[in-house]
Each structure stands twice: as structure tokens, then as C-alpha cells.
Amino acid sequence: MFRNFAVRAPMRLLVLFGALLLSACAAGPLQYDELVESNQYTTPVELLDTPFHPQEAYQCGPAALATILQVSGVDDATPERLADQVYLPERQGSLQMELLGATRRASRVPYVMAPTLDALMTEVYAGNPVLVLQNLGLPRWPMWHYAVVIGYDPEDQQVVLRSGTTEREIMSLRRFERTWKMADYWALVVTEPGVLPESAEPLRYFEAVAPLEQQQRWDVAIEAYQAAAEAWPGEATSFIGLGNIAYQQQRYGDAEFNYYQAIEINPEQAATYFNLAWALVRQAKFNAARSAANEAAQLAADDERMQQAPALIEQAIEDTQG
């Protein structure tokens, strides 16, 4: 499933996020054998302090989300408060989109994990419970259910979940994977602001953060981009995001600094030069703005929008001097 989105920013800024593969097709062999044979997870783990919210009929979404949000420090996240945000009466359940939206409203980054058992175990062993979507029915007649993985027993090859009305549900790893696979291995992990999930990958993480920037939840987005910049100093996207937020907050000097940081990492990205040109115009650095706009046009000779960059910046300079 590919999901495209565009982030709107004022002052003609361009945001550099593309489509990202968020879930895997359910086809293919189970990952169970590879995980067991790797002998990577040899000690049992169980996150005993994970809250438990017995789930009423069709209310597994609010309850599971409340569980992981509370672990991330959102103390007032209760199933009752979340139900209005994520529960759809006409569907008698919750869609993933609603869970992601409610997580952002709680000032958290909803990180949709890579669709692998290894990623799931990485998070659980790091102390992060993982919300998973399962199909407890059949492919043709699904029975969708949200649960929270809190443990694993490698000796008996069993997974421990907070699930339904069962505080400590034990399920064989093989059966768990089958139910998870029929839901395209969809899983969500949430951490405290500024803390990356243990299994985080740059592209997945940046797509998780971008909607927060779009919604002007800037404090959370800034913390997220700063954490990403520290974890992945070779990724220009962190600095582009910080630059875009600074520009929208009219901190043009900070925007300029971050765009230059991004250009140092990736000097071939035309849109970064275009954004830089606008930050320079706002500071009356007109010659530097012209140079940045020209660079954008030269780097993207086949992009009609970038070819207009010098003229747009020249018009902005005239308006400013005006």
C-alpha cells in the first residue's frame, strides 16, 4: 500500500517527502522460522508495567491505543477519551488512520513499523509495547482486532499480549504471526517526544513526522527532527524539516542555517536551494537569494517549477524593495 501526501507550507516552500511503502503484501512465507533460527532473542521478556484496559465489544482500538500512549507518558489517554476520536460506530471498529490521527493529537509521533517480526521483537526487547492489527478470522471472512504485544518467551516460542478482556494472553509465535500476516503485518509504536523507536528507519520516521509539521504541531515536530538529525546525521531531510518549520515561524536566520546544513549533506536537491532562496529574501540577502534560485534552476533543468525559481525570487525582491 503506497500512501502519497503533500505538505502545504506558506511562502511557496517545497517539502521533500515522497511516497513510502507502509505495509507488506500478505503473500510469501512466514518469518517465524527465520526468527527462531537466528537465535537472536534467547532470553524471555515481558513488559509487566504495561497498563491493561479490558476491551468492550468493538472497542479494541481505543483500548489498545490508550495502552501505548500511556506508556509514552500521555497519562490522560483513556479508552473513554479516545473512543470519540477513533471509534467508528458504523464500522463497529477503528481504522488505522484514526489511530494515527489520535496519536498526533496527543503530541506523539505515530511510527508505523517495518512489517517484520524482527522489528517487532526489537521494540519489545527495548521496552516498547507494540500495537498490532490482527485478523482472528479467515482471509475471506476477516475478524479484525487490535492488541498490544508486551512479551516473548523464546523457549516456548510464545507471544504475550494485552488483548480483549485478557490481561495476559499467551499465543504461539506461529499462530500470532499468521493472524498478524493476514492484517499485512501492520504495527504501531509510540515513544516519548524526541525519542526514536528502537527499530526506526529514516524514511518511515520522516513520513510519520511530516503530518505533524503539516498540522503545525511544531514543538513535537521539532523534537522529532532534532532526534532524527542526531541519529542520522547523513540525512538531509531532518534539516529540511527544521528549516521549513523555522521559516513558517518567521525565524528566517534559523531556516537559512538548516537549509545550508541540508545542502552540505545533499548538494543536488534543487528544492532545498529554492527554499533557501526564500529564507534569504526575507532577510534582505538579495544577491545570495538570486544565487540560490539560479542553483535550483540549474539542478532541475527538466522541472518547470524550478525553472521559474529565479523569476519568482526576483519578483519577491522587487516587492520587498518596493
Rank of each mutant, 00 (worst) to 15 (best):
V109W: 04
L280G: 11
R290E: 11
Y247M: 13
A183G: 08
C25V: 08
A210N: 02
F274L: 11
Y252E: 06
A19V: 07
E268H: 11
M97D: 13
W144F: 09
R162P: 08
A231V: 05
V160L: 15
A284L: 03
A187P: 05
T78K: 05
A227G: 15
Q158A: 14
L161I: 05
E235P: 09
Q249G: 14
L131H: 00
G151D: 07
A183M: 01
R251N: 12
G253K: 02
R81P: 08
V159N: 01
D33E: 14
E256W: 01
A224W: 01
A64F: 00
I170E: 10
R174V: 08
A227M: 14
G61V: 03
M143H: 09
A270V: 03
A292E: 09
Q92F: 12
V209G: 04
A24S: 15
M113W: 04
Y41C: 15
L161R: 02
A289V: 06
G194D: 11
V130H: 00
Y273M: 09
Q269C: 10
P51R: 07
W232G: 13
T67S: 12
E98R: 04
L14D: 13
N294W: 12
P54Y: 07
Y32H: 08
V36Y: 04
L120M: 12
M121I: 01
